[in-house]
Amino acid sequence: MSEQYDPNIVAFLCNWCSYAGADLAGTSRTHYPANINIIRVMCSGRVNPLFIINALQQGADGVLVSGCHPGDCHYMEGNFYARRRFGLMKELLEYVGVDPKRFNMSWVSASEGSKWKDVVEDVVEKAKEAGPFEQFRRNKINW
């Protein structure tokens, strides 16, 4: 792993809590690493588990799913489904030998701009430790 290695992280954020929390981090001019690329979905429950595998395949070194804290879901239950799905996804990836540091999930509320920064720093650091993802990365661009 080279010193310059800059991990690329794809993050799926729910519109109501985590995306808003990331907005708040911006409004508060909180600085954090630029390695994170956000895809907005309405709810963490919308994140298809195959997105995670797909993101790794399509070049991400790390993937993050972030939603509302349990009980705070704008749609009441979506994050509970997400929690169940991604708990198992993490197990599966780890089991086939993908570094568990690559896939993370977080609860970030709309008021937790500073937590969002911490989460980003944390996942970027973890992805750095894991190094560039090669295991089942696809070899050409998909479009």
């Binding site: 509970f80 929690r83 977080s106 989460v119 996942v123």
Partner: peptide
């Protein structure tokens, strides 16, 4: 299983 959850499902992996 896939279309249910329990409020106390494990979440120690969540940041």
């Amino acid at each position: 299983f896939q279309s249910s959850y329990r409020p106390d499902d494990q979440e120690d992996f969540i940041l």
